[in-house]
Amino acid sequence: MAMESEWVQAEAIEATEFQELAARHYVSGVPNTTINDGAGRVIGSVPEGKLVKELQRVLAG
């Protein structure tokens, strides 16, 4: 998604190395995707449509 928009940044974070950050986002299983520092979240490996939906919800709010 980051490739398709200059507004989007994507960061893959190794949760065991950055436990504090993972804990702050209540990450208990992986993959776990947070949008804009916790404004949105998608748990598990989901189809891209589901991530887009959550993104739309966050940006509409």
Partner: peptide
């Protein structure tokens, strides 16, 4: 469809994917 949506974005988005 996803590409078209992303093309129209006008605000910053940070996706952080936690993995192990």
């Amino acid at each position: 469809k996803t590409r078209a949506y992303l093309k129209d974005l006008k605000e910053p988005v940070l996706l952080q994917v936690f993995v192990t």
